[in-house]
Amino acid sequence: MAKLKTAFVILVLTLSVALLCACAKTGQYFIFGTFVDIKIDGAGGGSKLKEVESKLKELESRFSVALNSSEVYKINSAKAGEAVAVSDELLDILKVCEEVYNISNGLFDITVLPLVELWGFDAAFYNSFAPETLPDIEEIRDTLEYVGFDKITIDYEGKTVVKSDDRVKIDVGAVAKGYAVGAAANLCGSLKSLINIGGNIAAVNGEYKIGIASPREGKAYFGSFELKAGQTVSTSGDYERCYFKDGVRYCHVINPKTGLPAGVVYDDEERRYKNEENPLISATVITEGKYSYCDAISTALLLLGFDKGEKLLKELGLKGVLIKADLNYTAVCGLELTLK
């Protein structure tokens, strides 16, 4: 009888230990200037988490605009005509940037950095501080001269990037987070995991309930949907990294053609900036894998606006949700959205 009792105690202890090991391992970091949240289920999750963290830090050091050791920094500080050697990973990203630049008729453009800086959204910007003065429209028009994806030449075989103007600067921020999500998802292999890098989310070997952030006050979140295994989602909105000045909202996504933030227009008569009437304020897109592409498309959609954005989603056959300032929305390509 004593043996039976011992066996029972051992069984309970073993089950408890097994239960603890099977618990999800989570990691929260601050990388890419945003919050990174990773959840990995199953045995080996802890060591996998460390692998993912170091991979993300490596990618950040490679793609950062601010770190003077990064590849992007080297391109930005290079002279016109100088061939800058780049890694395969940056080339992968540049390829996606070129593809989405073409798809969006030039609205998705990584050479927009000089304008982003002009509007005060530099790497140190986090949220809500309006600069003392807004950039002058003439200054913006002058800057537009050296903005354009056609001002960089990418040699995919020779693995170099050449600029046609000293002042050209790139920022791969609108696609690097998506790329990093993909790199993390690949590292997770067969483990069930959820990767979230500042709202760029990947579901690996499992299904997760994802909420779309409420773009305006009022609701806890706008709506939710199921992100299936292998899918990734990305959202761009005018409510993130933005500031207000004299009642006008300025967000960090800058239109490379007008030089103005998404949803902002310049009134030539009144000589001031205004918010567009009922602009697109949130664009969500879901893709099967293609993590960097997903990230870039969401930015392109925000710049395209509601009607053109909806058309593009349908043409590409991608599921997505577009929300206008009056909170009217459309869910495209059969996405089942449950409103909050």
């Binding site: 929260q28 601050f30 919050f35 949240d37 959840k39 986090y126 959820l194 979230n196 709202g199 760029n200 989310i201 997760y208 309930k209 994802i210 909420g211 779309i212 952030a213 806890a220 979140y221 939710s224 989602v233 990305s234 959202t235 969500t284």
Partner: peptide, 19 residues
Amino acid sequence: CLPNRVVVKIVSGDLDAIT
């Protein structure tokens, strides 16, 4: 708060993540 490495966030009860 980047200098002090503090992050405060609101998480939902019924969602796995917010995009």
